[in-house]
Design a protein around this nucleic acid. Structure first.
Lengths: 214, 214
DNA sequence: TCTTGATTGACAAGTATTTAACAAATGCAT
DNA sequence: ATGCATTTGTTAAATACTTGTCAATCAAGA
């Protein structure tokens, strides 16, 4: 597996490949050509081959790709063959929803702690965790080998909390707060800005309406 | 406002501009140059000007951009100057979390109904709505001028429900189900695949680790 | 009113991404 | 075994996106 720098465009497509390959695996399909996969996924075969080749050849000429092998390789590339330990900061509706979503757990994402500044929530049981006060953050992170912090707090607090967590050694943020974190270069941030997503949706609604009016 | 086809790359950046402009507005900043904004947002000034010019010139040479005007124009482009009526299909944790998130409401997104197939939830009050059985979907959508359906159901049901909703006249989906909807051309879909996002995160964690090992 | 400095809009140059095309490699039928 | 059909990996072409540059324009001060 070469490691030049692969564009984020390619990376963004990998989870989708993984999903389709998972389904094929479940249907006991053993092999698939880029042509077939392209029809299934509604992309060009060329793009599929190009994407896979970023990581070295996974296929065989005249044969195609072995579904199982390809699936495992992509999973490895995405880093989901390992176990990750997460904490959730912000035990509001969204934080609780994520905590309860079992599919993450299945993929090796272990939610190990959940925190909130609202006293009323302290001790509340969410799945198998009890909501802890923010004061516990530092110790907990250090003691529990936490990879990823999920930020589901309002934007006002987010930047400060992120700074604090960086100092505690957290290497990655899954950021649902509607603000840009400002973290050092070696820290990974993946933003999920839901309202941005919703605005893209309304843009496209308006555009389609205009198209149809013409 | 010209209407060639603007790339989704540009559209994806608009909500972020809007956010920063909103903050400037709140701080009573009246004017800003692409230069200043670029420093604030950590992008190139050229990109900012290019982006805005897709929609016709919003600025003035020698002066810059009027924050208020620019904000309003972008809001208009994004279609958030209008009111939208949404239903949530799937009253699980995520559906409830979205229903309770007040910021959407402020932006003109009105959640008007919430549905689930789980009888145990029927009648449960979520914000100012009561969970309804799926059987009510069709009538409700037709009677309430629904724009957008939010799908927060497991993937198995999603495709079928989407088909049904298309037949009822829903024009847009905000899709949290981990599956690709297959809808006609004139229907808008915005996917929020949370697990994909999480995988991108772990990819980048692994990559950074490797970089640092070298 | 004129001049100066600032700043956009437009265009050109530079990158990056996507698609097409095809030779080389392989499986499979005969 | 042999040859044909298939399908990859790779290179080239096409397209899309981003950045740099600068003339035209405007605000503001003299």
């Amino acid at each position: 597996m070469d490691d030049k720098n692969i564009s984020q465009a390619v990376i963004s497509r990998l989870p989708r490949y993984l999903r389709y390959l998972g389904e094929l695996k479940d249907s006991n399909v053993e092999r698939i050509s880029s042509q077939e996969l392209s029809q299934l996924m509604n992309v060009t075969a060329s793009q599929i081959r190009q994407d896979f080749n970023n990581f070295g050849g996974f296929g065989q000429q005249g044969y195609g790709y072995k579904v199982n092998f390809l699936y495992d390789e992509i999973a490895k590339i995405l880093g989901i063959n390992k176990t990750h330990h997460l904490i959730i900061v912000g035990a509001g509706n969204l934080g609780q929803a994520l905590a309860n979503y079992m599919n993450f757990e299945r993929r090796g994402f272990h939610f190990t702690g959940i925190f909130d500044r609202n006293e009323a929530l302290y001790g509340k049981k969410i799945r198998d965790m009890y909501v802890q006060p923010m004061e516990n953050l530092e110790t907990f992170v250090k003691d529990n080998d936490i990879d990823i912090a999920v930020l589901t707090i309002p934007k006002d607090g987010a930047v400060k909390v992120a700074d604090k967590l960086v100092r505690c050694g957290v290497k990655a943020f899954w950021n649902f707060a509607h603000v840009d974190l400002n973290v050092p270069d070696d820290i990974v941030v993946e933003n999920v800005h839901l309202s941005d997503s919703l605005m893209k949706l309304t843009y496209n609604i308006t555009r389609k309406e205009q198209e149809n009016d013409i």
